[in-house]
């Protein structure tokens, strides 16, 4: 996880650097703010992964050159093999976007589908399963 954090931090530092150069040179606020956002999007997860790497105190099997298959054996996670809720949630979003064009009445099926999907997916997660 150390390499992952270094990559994100380097990208963040680069965006911060060009953000300073750009804003200092051109005084254009829109681009400066967007580069600030890019800087934060590199630094925040980068530091999180660095903290997480130090806290976990060592390399995972996927980070070690000499790891064997046996080192990574065991349960990876619980994965849902099928679920109707992504389709229901996507349909809800579809109706909500159509409501922006064709009228607010479409929010009724849209929000209905959205809520039922959230409840259904949550119940499904309680029984076990990844997001």
């Amino acid at each position: 996880m150390k390499q992952e954090s270094v990559i994100l931090l380097l990208l963040g530092v680069f965006f911060g650097f060009i953000g300073v150069v750009y804003w200092g040179w051109g005084h254009e606020d829109g681009g400066g703010i967007m580069l600030l956002g890019a800087f934060l999007l590199g630094m925040l997860p980068g530091f999180y992964y660095l903290w997480w790497y130090r806290k976990s105190g060592g390399n995972r099997p996927e980070d070690r050159d000499d790891a064997t298959v046996a080192d990574g054996a065991g349960v990876v996670d619980a994965f849902p093999s099928t679920s109707i809720w992504p389709f229901v949630l996507g349909s809800g979003c579809f109706f909500i976007v159509l409501a922006l064009t064709f009228g607010t009445w479409l929010l009724v099926p849209g929000v209905g589908l959205l809520l039922s999907a959230l409840i259904g997916a949550t119940a499904e997660s309680r029984r076990g399963g990844n997001v």
Binding site: V69, A70, D77, F79, P80, G129
Partner: peptide, 12 residues
């Protein structure tokens, strides 16, 4: 439906 997935424990 949920599958509890394990990695293989032995190498080919």
């Amino acid at each position: 439906m949920t599958d509890l997935i394990e990695r293989p424990s032995t190498e080919a």
